[in-house]
Design a protein around this nucleic acid. Structure first.
Length: 201
DNA sequence: CCGGGGATTATCT
DNA sequence: GATAATCCCCGGC
């Protein structure tokens, strides 16, 4: 069980990294409250050329500033005015590749996740979808720019094994306006897992 | 389970 | 002023 090192995030192929993240663990430790989950769904967003990315054509604003940070940085933005979307920045400084965390399977701190989500019982809706992941893990825009090599948000490898055949791929969700880039197969998921979103597609 | 529609506001034009 | 990498609730089946 060890923290993913900088060398995991600094690779150049964000699509491969998104796939490699399936089965890894994300942990948050905020004010002594530890929650964690196994990553079961991700989406890759490619720097500059990907119309679905906030950094398309080099766009750089206060909102997406942290996409241009070091690999292994969190980029968190607000969607639809209320949902906190957690992304993992990869590649290198000033190359805004990022990976959206779309779903996790709860592991540690389920009681705290339930409280943050305003739910009484744990079921598949606890962490199925990017907004729910952010809320359950207590991640908000405040954490954008945090290093994933630190002790508040980080990823772990517990040597959980997933074979290539257990990883599905599909076009990304909710990016219809990206034209032909909306059809690229940059979404990855753990086949058969209860927490994967949009199982009909 | 499935589809429709409203919620709700930061962000950029 | 329009849009948005979504979620929840409701009704129907």
């Amino acid at each position: 069980m060890k923290k993913l090192p900088l060398s995991f995030y600094s690779r150049k192929d964000v699509v491969s990294i998104a796939k490699d993240l399936i089965g890894k663990i994300i942990v948050t430790n905020f004010e002594g409250i530890i929650t964690s989950g196994r990553i079961v769904e991700t989406e890759a967003y490619i720097a500059f050329t990907d119309k679905a990315s906030h950094s398309f054509s080099g766009k750089r604003t206060p909102r997406n500033e942290h996409m241009y940070s070091a690999p292994g940085t969190a980029y968190v933005y607000i969607c639809y005015g209320m949902h906190q979307m957690m992304n993992i920045v990869t590649n290198d400084f000033n190359i805004p590749d990022a990976i959206l965390l779309r779903a996790v399977e709860p592991l540690q701190g389920i009681d705290h996740m339930l409280e943050r989500r305003g739910k009484k019982k744990s079921d598949k809706t606890l962490t199925r979808g990017p907004g729910k992941v952010g809320k359950a893990l207590g991640i908000s825009k405040f954490h954008s720019g945090f290093s994933l090599l630190g002790n508040e948000i980080y990823l772990m490898d517990d040597h959980f094994k997933i074979s290539p055949a257990q990883i599905g791929e599909s076009p990304r969700i909710g990016v219809e306006s990206a034209g032909k880039d909306a059809k690229l197969p940059y979404r990855f998921y753990f086949k058969g897992n209860l927490y994967v979103s949009h199982t009909r597609k």
